[in-house]
C-alpha cells in the first residue's frame, strides 16, 4: 500500500515521470574533430550525402639549417589532395593522390559500432574498419626486372577502436596491417603490422590538441634504401582549429607520407635529430542532403 501511495505521489511531477521513463541511448558525437586524428584515420565518418574535400601538406625536415634556409621546410612541400564521400552515415569512400610518390589511394571506412551512453542500449566503444589500396603511378626504374601492374599495389587494413572518455578526452587504438606487393629488397618484409595509438584533448570548444603514434610490431629491421639507417616509427603532435565549415589541422610529424602504407612503414625522420616536419590538413565539408527538412 505504501508503494502505491508513493506511486500515486510520484505521478504528480510529470517531468520526473518523463525522465524516469526515458530509455533512449544517445550516440556519442565528435570523438575526434576530423576523419583523421592527425594523418591516421579516426573513428569519424563523413555523414550521408556529405562530401569532404581535403588538402594535406607536409613540408621538409626542420633539421640543420632548414628551418630558416627553406623557411620551416616550406620549399619542399609535398601535397595530398583527397575527397571523402558519405554513402550512408556508416559507410564512407575516399580517393586521394599524393605528390612526390605519385600514389593514388582508394579507401573505404565502415562504422561497425557506435559509442552510446544512457538508456538501455548503451555501448562503451566506437568500432570502425578502414581499408585502402594504394596505386603507385611512378615509372618503373628497373627495366631489367619484369614489372607487373600488381607490383604497383599496396594495401592497408585497420580496426579502429575509439572511446570518448569524457567531453574533453578521447582515445583510440588502431591495429594496422600493411601489405606491399613490391618492396625494395628481397629481404624486406611485404607485411608490416603496427599498433596505432591516438589521443585528443579538447582545449576550447573550437580547438584541440592531438597525439598519434604508430609503433611497428613487425618489420622493424627494414633499412631506408641506399642507407644503413632503419625506418622510424611514426609520431605526430597536432593542433585542430575549427572555423565554421573548415577544420584546420596543424602538426609536427616525422613522416612526409599522408597515407598509411607510407607513414606506418616508411617513416624516415628521427624526432631526436629534429627530423620532423611541419604540416597541415585543411578540410571543408559540403552537404548534398537536400531532401531532409521540408
Amino acid at each position: 500500500m505504501l508503494l502505491m501511495v508513493n506511486f500515486a505521489w510520484a505521478q504528480d511531477d510529470l517531468l520526473d515521470m518523463l525522465k524516469s521513463e526515458n530509455t533512449v541511448s544517445s550516440p556519442v558525437l565528435a570523438t575526434f574533430k576530423g576523419t583523421r586524428i592527425i594523418t591516421g584515420q579516426s573513428n569519424e565518418n563523413i555523414a550521408k550525402k556529405h562530401l569532404n574535400f581535403l588538402i594535406l601538406h607536409r613540408f621538409g625536415e626542420l633539421k640543420d639549417d632548414a628551418w630558416y634556409y627553406s623557411l620551416l621546410g616550406i620549399d619542399e612541400a609535398t601535397v595530398r589532395i583527397a575527397f571523402d564521400y558519405g554513402i550512408t552515415d556508416k559507410l564512407m569512400v575516399g580517393v586521394g593522390r599524393s605528390s612526390k610518390t605519385k600514389v593514388y589511394d582508394f579507401s573505404v571506412k565502415y562504422k561497425i559500432a557506435q559509442q552510446k551512453i544512457g538508456g538501455n542500449k548503451n555501448f562503451p566503444l566506437a568500432i570502425s574498419y578502414y581499408g585502402n589500396m594504394g596505386l603507385n603511378s611512378t615509372t618503373f626504374t628497373e627495366p631489367t626486372r619484369e614489372n607487373y601492374f600488381t607490383s604497383r599495389l599496396s594495401f592497408c587494413n585497420q580496426l579502429i577502436i575509439a572511446r570518448k572518455i569524457n567531453p574533453s578526452i578521447s582515445i583510440q587504438i588502431t591495429p594496422t596491417f600493411v601489405h606491399r606487393n613490391l618492396v625494395n629488397k628481397t629481404s624486406d618484409p611485404n607485411d608490416v603490422i603496427a599498433l596505432g595509438l591516438g589521443g585528443s584533448f579538447k582545449i576550447t570548444r573550437s580547438t584541440r590538441l592531438n597525439v598519434e603514434y604508430y609503433p611497428r610490431l613487425t618489420g622493424r629491421d627494414e633499412l631506408i634504401p641506399n642507407t644503413t639507417n632503419k625506418f622510424e616509427d611514426y609520431l605526430a603532435v597536432g593542433f585542430d582549429i575549427e572555423t565554421g565549415g573548415h577544420v584546420f589541422q596543424l602538426m609536427f610529424s616525422n613522416s612526409m607520407y599522408m597515407y598509411e602504407q607510407g607513414f606506418v612503414a616508411q617513416t624516415t625522420g628521427k624526432w631526436s635529430d629534429f627530423g620532423i616536419r611541419l604540416g597541415f590538413n585543411l578540410s571543408r565539408t559540403f552537404s548534398f542532403d537536400n531532401e531532409h527538412i521540408k
Binding site: 550516440p27 550521408k48 565539408t285 552537404s287 537536400n290 531532409h292
Partner: peptide, 10 residues
Amino acid sequence: NNSFQFPNKL
C-alpha cells in the same frame, strides 16, 4: 538535444 537533425551534419 542530440536528437535534433540538421540538413548539414557539420
